[in-house]
Design a protein around this nucleic acid. Sequence first.
DNA 1: CCGCATCCTCATGGATACTG
DNA 2: CAGTATCCATGAGGATGCGG
Lengths: 207, 207
Amino acid sequence: MSTRSYGQYCGLARSLDTVGDRWSLLIVRELLRGPMRYGELVASLDGIATNLLAGRLRSLESTGVIERRPGETSGVVYTLTPWGSELRESIEALIRWSTPLMISGRGGDSFEPRWLAVALEALLRGRTATPPAELGLEVDGVFMILRIDADGPDVIVEPERRPETIMIAEPEAILGLAAGALTVEDALSMASVHGDRRVLSAVLGGA
Amino acid sequence: MSTRSYGQYCGLARSLDTVGDRWSLLIVRELLRGPMRYGELVASLDGIATNLLAGRLRSLESTGVIERRPGETSGVVYTLTPWGSELRESIEALIRWSTPLMISGRGGDSFEPRWLAVALEALLRGRTATPPAELGLEVDGVFMILRIDADGPDVIVEPERRPETIMIAEPEAILGLAAGALTVEDALSMASVHGDRRVLSAVLGGA
DNA sequence: CCGCATCCTCATGGATACTG
DNA sequence: CAGTATCCATGAGGATGCGG
């Protein structure tokens, strides 16, 4: 379908032959948080042409990165294969690398809380806590829980319940804190916190 | 110059805005092993149009990924900035992900020993050895030393001296062994080894 | 020479309309 | 809702020219 192969017997080149075209990795990013329908992908990847999305989905399916499945109720849903899920490592590495690009601010770009969930897990990967610590986050009107326990970080978007400590902030403040580019004091000056601020430090602050 | 921005306030999208166009990450891969001249890049990235290479180099320089410097004797050399070097993590993750794409064999693709050096470091990252273990590799007529010590793996291409144990093989056999997709016996049947085979197991074989 | 810039052709991406 | 079909804009690939 799309890309010409680089024709190089090199792992990077072959990876890029597979997921290197425009939009492909963003599609995988969306599916990292669970199966999605075609329409949801169109909505989330604002601006993608529908023919391009259809082409990418077919290409990713043919290379074994994603699978088409009958939906629970109707239609089809797209999901990552086990090998496709292993792209999480690469995607998280690129997200960590992007820190200087992100702390410069949102500008006029669009924003989805789901992207923040992926980014927080990437930035906090390797961090563990016993006993588990939970922090509520309200961003762009969407509520989520960031939990760190012995298994590492995990973000739940739109959970049923709400933890005691809650931070209401712009994505910049939360990302800056998680990336270590902002002190807790700086972040607090850009946010509103209810509950115990020590929880905030414990979860999002430096080690 | 090139890419349209995705317009998303997401670390992955912003990373791809910066290094996501065709050839960009392959240029970074080349520079991971040291500064290179324009002509060397043209030769190594077989198939890249010269105007494209010039454009990518300008773009990568303007975003702070690489730097132009006066060469030791004459001309200019391109080198990674510290931030650019941090792409190693992402590139190595993509290389590890490519394992299924690589063990299928070389096909008609071109091959550079330098790419194997990067791949071996990616696949063996995290592995350490005390005392240090050294294995010589001869691939495509090029000699290299793979050394694993307390700091992790390191590959030297075209070294001065030669270690005692040397494996002469196709890249597929070496990669398959390093990736754990081949047993030592299988790899041996595809290769010729001089010296102590236990060194081969210790360096390239499973833990 | 080496380090690009120009020119031309064609494949790919982008926007929108349309259909099973 | 889940895509195709169509048409235009842009970027990639290849050959060649040119200045320091």
